[in-house]
């Protein structure tokens, strides 16, 4: 058939009775239509540690979770609050160093260091980023890219916090099961929490700040205030990841300000589907294990995911998740014109 004679028709499948955002579930089939994908996702994630073949791959799961938290934070900031932050490493480093200091200098146990470093780290990150919040687009991206670098160099130059050697002797999680299930639970909690948040009234305000900040100002709200809240939430996720990373590796060093933590979450978001919140996490579950497989090749893995990122940007991919959602909710067929 010639292209001029046919067109693609897309039809919704699934729930019959619905209007935007409100569904009337009429049958068990419709109920499962909505819940099965979520249940599969949650159960799949919870089973993962049990089916992993070795200790090494179980450890990889924890690392995936850290990247997943970062990717979630990037996606939230970029696509729901309009702040493209290239400084994921800054959150990881801040959270990590705070946890390490609390543990080694004050002898606090894991159960205390992780919440404290999450909140304190988020507060510190927000305070430091506060002057940059009025910046738009590119400028905010550049400035956040510079933050982790400047902190790494300052730690190196002043030789504080262990200097280039880092802080060693941080306690680990009680055992690997606690470690993995804690990380996975956190990812799930934050994922569903964020999904809820962006649809709450305050979530709409974040999206409004992204869409049209002038109208938000004209509505009598300070955009800086809401941007700061968004940065606090996002950096809390990053700092949590950082604190866990330190406890997993039992070590904190300037490599936590390294570029890996800034670039992988972005790549995962682009691959998984920007603005979906689930997509970035799926992206991490795909990208990080592949990158681990390539660990033997050293820095080649950075080349690998940089090129994947470029490829996805160049073909302007919508991302796995957006594609999947469309295929799930609609079916397509060719019709004659």
């Amino acid at each position: 058939m010639d292209i001029g004679e046919r067109r693609k028709e897309r039809l919704d499948r699934g729930i019959k009775v619905r209007t935007d955002g409100i569904y009337a579930l009429m049958s068990l089939r419709e109920l499962s239509y909505l819940t099965v994908p979520r249940l599969v996702f949650i159960l799949g994630i919870l089973i993962l540690p049990l089916v992993m073949p070795s200790m090494y791959w179980q450890r990889v799961i924890s690392i995936v979770c850290i990247y997943a938290l970062l990717a979630l934070s990037f996606d939230f900031l970029a696509h729901f609050a309009g702040l493209v932050s290239l400084g994921g490493a800054f959150f990881i480093g801040t959270g990590g160093y705070i946890a390490a200091i609390l543990n080694t200098s004050f002898g606090l146990p894991t159960i205390v260091t992780i919440p404290i470093s999450t909140l304190l780290g988020a507060a510190i990150c927000t305070l430091l980023l506060l002057p940059c919040l009025p910046l738009r687009g590119v400028y905010f991206a550049i400035v956040t890219l510079m933050y982790p670098l400047v902190f790494a160099r300052i730690i190196e130059a002043l030789n504080i916090f262990g200097g280039t050697d880092g802080i060693m002797g941080v306690v680990s999680f009680p055992n690997r099961w606690v470690e993995q299930y804690f990380m996975l639970t956190m990812v799930l909690l934050f994922l569903f929490g964020m999904r809820r948040l962006v649809n709450l009234d305050i979530g709409l305000v974040f999206r409004a700040v992204k869409d049209n900040d002038q109208a938000v100002r004209a509505s009598g709200m300070s955009i800086t205030h809401y941007k700061a809240i968004a940065v606090f939430i996002a950096s809390a996720m990053g700092c949590l990841g950082g604190a866990c990373l330190v406890h997993i590796y039992m070590w904190s060093g300037i490599s936590q300000f390294a570029l890996d933590f800034s670039i992988i979450p972005i790549a995962a978001t682009v691959i998984g589907g920007a603005g979906t919140l689930v997509g970035p996490i799926l992206g991490c579950f795909i990208l990080v294990p592949i990158s681990e497989l390539l660990r033997a090749f050293g820095t080649l893995r950075i080349v690998f995911y940089s090129l994947i990122l470029v490829a996805f940007i160049v073909i302007r991919s919508e991302g796995i998740m957006v594609y999947g959602q469309r295929k799930y909710h609609q079916f397509e067929r060719w019709v004659k014109v």
Partner: peptide, 10 residues
């Protein structure tokens, strides 16, 4: 309208 209604004044 949620956005203006969320403002301190509203």
């Amino acid at each position: 309208l949620i956005i203006p209604l969320f403002s301190p004044r509203a």
